[in-house]
Design a protein around this nucleic acid. Structure first.
Lengths: 353, 353
DNA sequence: AGCGGTCTTGACATCGCTGCCTCGCGGCCG
DNA sequence: CGGCCGCGAGGCAGCGATGTCAAGACCGCT
């Protein structure tokens, strides 16, 4: 580091304290003095050492972001939402990917305990949740983004997965599909359960049926979705509407249906879940339940920063609504009937790419 | 911060210096003393303040990553590659998204000049390149990942886009396609030029033709690719092989071909470029030129960290080879003839999701 | 006993900035 | 005309580590 506050002070003929006052825009400095100091700073190209500032102030103006992996399809959207809020607020964004499991988490813990960050934003913390709870109880600002639908015992942001399932059901009903099938993700995914619950829930009392035989589980991958549909078809099960909890699996499902010669959406209407970028690239483009990943990230970031600024908002989870993005894998439906009387946007819009 | 090195020293009845020695695993401490100090540290749950360490040591063990946006489809792969190297090396990863343009870049510059990071890894820096060059000349370790094919005047990592274009051409030739068409990305993208050059290059002397009329430009989006194919078809141009520089556009192209009733790969074989996740979800799955994003990120990170450790590797750009991922949008071809005699892997593998 | 060398350890200066307390000084009020 | 007030600015003590230097203990050897 070259020029320090002491240099500036000496050149300006003032004390370090005064330079510091100018630096922090404090009002108790004479205009002339301030101008002179600012001039010197400009001339010398002085930039305060963030290391020293951090130590002296006792904070780092940095938030830690803990993400299990960056490869989840919605993660970039979410992260962008976080970055768009965190950076303009003057905070840095220290990314920890916990993909490595144990060692990665230990590094994260060390970073946090060493006060390298002022707060933590955790996405889908999973096993790290207990640790985060401890940190939170010790007074560290923590916000979690819950993509799993389970409520963390912490300030959190999530989406209404149950309602997402309902929306999918509504759309299929509106399209007149009565013999439904569903592909769920891995059983341990609580979002899947919530979502499936909402789906089944809305069906009761309608003419539509979703038999247990028509519900199959897959691993979340495109291939998994492909295999799942093949299982259904080989079992000679009939269905004219298919709800797939996860867009990648839905893409696989479309491929399997097409290979089997089934028309989509003519013979089978397909609704996915998540609205991740690949959803727009299937043929036909996938109708899906949109989860507002970016907004969720932004909201979590805002909540975290509010806490850092001492605004202690309530700890209630902030739940986002899902919405339906109607593309080509379901027949056009102008309006969804039913008590909730929702409108379905017909969108040709692509997610930003 | 609760317990400090001074507390530990007092409790152990030694000086701070000795505690520091233990902390840093220096050998010149008596075993008994060391054991006692370690015990105290464990009891008190002492963790050194990274803020203080950073100031005292004059570095932050953090690298800055500058990315134009996180939404580029290959960015997550690349970032994961970076994270997988940076984190185990004991460095933090400070993410700057320059999406915001001016202000975001200024924040980045401030962070760097304030020595908040020990080095910088920039992805596609674009306009920030000059700034990075200055930083590099001032001695800051900088590595850039060049996804554009142009060579930065800096240590960099890139891919051989020209060769990527050649591979696409080889595959189409091997499939017996002689009347070719091409959709390029935005003209200002230098990777596109390199790639198109390689493609055209390999065609010369073969029976295949790529007329200027059959080359059209699109904006890189799925819709852009869709429109581009429609333009070609409306112009009643015949082609049995199509090279699309960018997987999202290729997805759009597939959709347009399908809507026009053209069989893929029967009537038209389609090769994309990039191998981003959506490529695996099209119907049929897209054959594409794979760019090893993750490896490139990892290599850049390694290069940066080597520099941080003083290993001054040569500044030559590190260029990665592309490869062909053959999926369903081209007919199966066992082996590519020709002087280079390459083998084409037939892959059903999906990118990690 | 005296000397040089190794091993441990402590004292103290530093890193660069912030924050608290103090002080000089000119103006205002009584 | 003296005291009080408030502004502008300086001094100095942290923040919590690192790192250098020197000192004391202990060793083997001459």
């Amino acid at each position: 580091m070259r020029v320090t506050i002491a240099d500036v002070a000496r050149l300006a003929g003032v004390s370090k304290a005064t330079v510091s006052r100018v630096l922090n825009g404090r009002p108790d400095v004479e205009r002339a003095t301030q101008a002179r100091i600012e001039e010197i700073m400009a001339e010398t190209g002085y930039v305060p050492s963030s290391r020293a500032v951090d130590l002296a102030r006792g904070r780092t103006r940095t938030v830690g972001v803990l993400a299990p992996t960056l490869r989840t399809p919605w993660m970039p959207e979410l992260l962008q939402g976080v970055a768009d809020v965190v950076e303009p607020s003057g905070y840095g964004l220290l990314l920890h990917s916990a993909a490595g499991g144990g060692p990665a988490l230990e590094r994260f813990a060390a970073s946090v305990r060493g006060h390298a960050v002022d707060g933590v934003l955790a996405v889908d913390p999973g096993a790290a949740l207990d640790h985060l709870r401890d940190l939170h109880q010790q007074g560290l600002p923590v916000v979690v983004v819950d993509t799993g639908g389970k409520r963390a015992p912490l300030p959190s942001v999530g989406a209404d997965y149950t309602d997402g399932g309902r929306r999918a059901a509504e759309l299929l009903l509106a399209a007149g599909r009565l013999r439904l099938a569903m592909i769920t993700g891995p059983a341990e995914d609580p979002a899947g359960a919530a979502c499936a619950g909402g789906f089944a829930d809305l069906l009761t009392g309608t003419g539509a049926v979703l038999r247990a035989s028509h519900v199959t589980e897959a691993d979340g991958t495109e291939q998994g979705g492909f295999d799942a549909v093949q299982r259904l078809l080989r079992a000679r099960l009939f269905f004219d509407g298919l709800f797939v909890h996860g867009d990648p699996m839905a893409a696989g499902a479309l491929r399997a249906l097409q290979e089997a010669g089934r028309q989509v959406p003519g013979e089978v209407a397909v609704v996915g879940f998540g609205d991740v970028p690949p959803a727009a690239y299937t043929v036909p483009p996938l109708t899906t339940v949109r989860v507002p990943w970016e907004e969720m990230g932004a909201a979590a970031a805002r909540a975290l920063i509010d806490r850092l600024h001492g605004k202690h908002a309530d700890d209630d989870p902030e739940i986002f609504e899902t919405s339906l993005v109607s593309r080509g894998s379901t027949p056009p439906v102008g309006r969804i009937p039913g008590q909730r009387n929702r409108r379905v946007a017909r969108s040709t819009e692509l997610p930003a790419f």
